[in-house]
Nucleic acid binder design. Structure first.
Lengths: 157, 157
DNA sequence: CGTGAAAGGGTTCACTC
DNA sequence: GAGTGAACCCTTTCACG
């Protein structure tokens, strides 16, 4: 979909405040509420906006640990990858999972409450995933940046 | 902050739909609108809810590439870390950055439009960050999981 | 925490340019 | 595509039980 500068301004505003009302949004981007509502409709239906989410403090939920897990499988056959991915999707502690190029096949971000919780997750989920031959866990000491999205260049919006 | 099962239900509902109205939320969790509004106020002011954000398709913005970058610095002195972090925060393409235990000091998730864009980011931002002695980039072939948050156990809510 | 009411906004039309 | 105006619906915020 083609995005003009008003669309980008709408996206930037809703990235910053996803609960902004349509009328406030309209004012922020310099449109009437009806025109703004029509634009927003397009952005949502075209999939440009994938959803709206409250960002909940992991800390408040008791998830104080973040692990980065590198995983290698025994081969890169379609069937192997598919079976692994179906299984990993069932683990609620896995927040992010990418299929990668390079030394490891997958990289995961895993949320755990504490070290004992991570040990459980490692045992019951990660090392029992199908086709896994190598797991390498490391732990985040501190979160330096965690943006909800790639930013929108203010020069374009 | 102590969270009871109604609080968790509110968080789960707003994770799923951050634009849900207060009255819809109240109905979803079985409260009156006024009581629900009071709870929500607490959750926001206590920092349990860190914000509301539209999730914008990186694809639609032209960011088709995701790189995972491992970085080592020349030492772990406070000053070294601080200077690195201040610099990395200025790069808009860095979506996530963790200070890590283990082989590398930092792990970054970087969004780029294409390989040429990544080359530019690598040259102008990453390799010119202060104190960097080792950079290892790998690229995501596919996004398997990308949840906005750690999920809330439905059994508790 | 729930109720109910008041006041103020928000959304969504049809219509016009 | 954009703006206007009006109808309708909803939200927020009280005081009170």
């Amino acid at each position: 979909m083609e995005l003009d500068s008003i669309d980008l301004a709408i996206l930037a505003a809703l990235q910053a405040d996803g609960r902004m009302s349509n009328s406030a949004l309209a004012e922020a981007v310099g449109l009437s509420p009806s025109a703004c509502s029509r634009r927003l409709d397009h952005l949502e239906k075209s999939g440009t906006i994938r959803g709206y989410h409250a960002r909940v403090s992991n800390q408040a939920l008791g998830y104080t640990m973040t692990a980065i897990v590198h995983i290698s499988l025994s081969g890169q056959f379609q069937k192997t990858l598919r079976e692994f991915e179906e299984a990993v999707k069932r683990c609620p502690n896995v927040i992010v999972c990418y299929l990668m190029s390079g030394e490891y096949d997958y990289i995961l971000r895993v949320a755990a409450k504490d070290l004992a919780d991570y040990e459980r997750i490692h045992r019951d989920w990660l090392s029992s995933l199908p086709h896994v031959v190598k797991i390498n866990s490391s732990f985040a000491l501190r979160e330096v940046i965690d943006r909800p999205n790639v930013g929108i260049d203010p020069a374009l919006a």
